[in-house]
Computed example of a mutant assay.
Amino acid sequence: MQELMRSNDVVLLSFVDALLKDADIPHFLADVHMSILDGSIGVLPRRVLVDTDRMDQARRILKDADLGHELS
């Protein structure tokens, strides 16, 4: 798996999660439970990981949703 993007914005992460689910792209939201370590203040970014063979498709979906600036 490769990192598609990282963000502290939980709304953005939720939107990207929904976009990838709708496109049936296998992905994993990493570091979701790291808020335990940072005291729930959202300092540590969460990462969206995508299967390497589907990375181009996932990047295209985010660009089409005008989120290209969020890509890693």
Rank of each mutant, 00 (worst) to 15 (best):
D64N: 15
L37S: 08
D31V: 00
M34K: 12
V10F: 14
S14G: 14
L29C: 09
L62P: 13
L67T: 11
K21R: 10
M34H: 03
A65I: 07
R6M: 06
G39Y: 10
L12W: 04
M34D: 12
V43P: 00
I36W: 09
R59V: 00
G42T: 03
I36F: 13
D51S: 09
I25G: 01
K21Y: 05
D64H: 08
D53I: 05
N8D: 03
R60D: 15
M5A: 13
L67Q: 15
R6S: 11
V10A: 06
R54I: 01
S35A: 06
L20P: 06
D51M: 08
D53S: 08
L12D: 09
S40R: 09
L4S: 11
D56F: 00
D38F: 12
M1S: 14
R6P: 02
D64A: 10
P26I: 03
L62F: 05
H69C: 04
R47L: 13
D56Q: 11
L20I: 01
A30V: 03
K21L: 04
M34Y: 12
T52G: 02
M34F: 13
L29V: 13
H27N: 10
D56W: 02
L71Y: 12
A30G: 02
M1W: 00
V50Y: 07
S72Q: 10
Q57H: 09
I25P: 11
E3P: 00
L13N: 06
A30W: 01
H33E: 15
L49I: 05
M55F: 14
K21Q: 09
R54Q: 12
V43D: 08
P26A: 03
L71E: 11
R60Q: 15
R46I: 15
H69Q: 08
S72H: 08
I36L: 14
L19Q: 12
V32C: 06
M1Y: 04
H69M: 07
L44Q: 12
V48E: 08
R47Y: 15
T52D: 15
E3S: 09
H27R: 02
D22C: 00
S72L: 04
D53R: 11
M5W: 01
A58N: 06
H27I: 02
A23C: 01
D51K: 14
Q57K: 10
L44K: 10
L12K: 07
G68L: 04
V10L: 15
Q57E: 15
S7A: 13
L67C: 14
E3M: 10
E70D: 09
G42R: 05
I41F: 13
M34A: 10
L13S: 03
S40N: 14
D17R: 09
I61A: 07
D24V: 01
K63W: 00
P26F: 05
L49H: 01
L19C: 07
D22A: 11
V11F: 13
P26S: 03
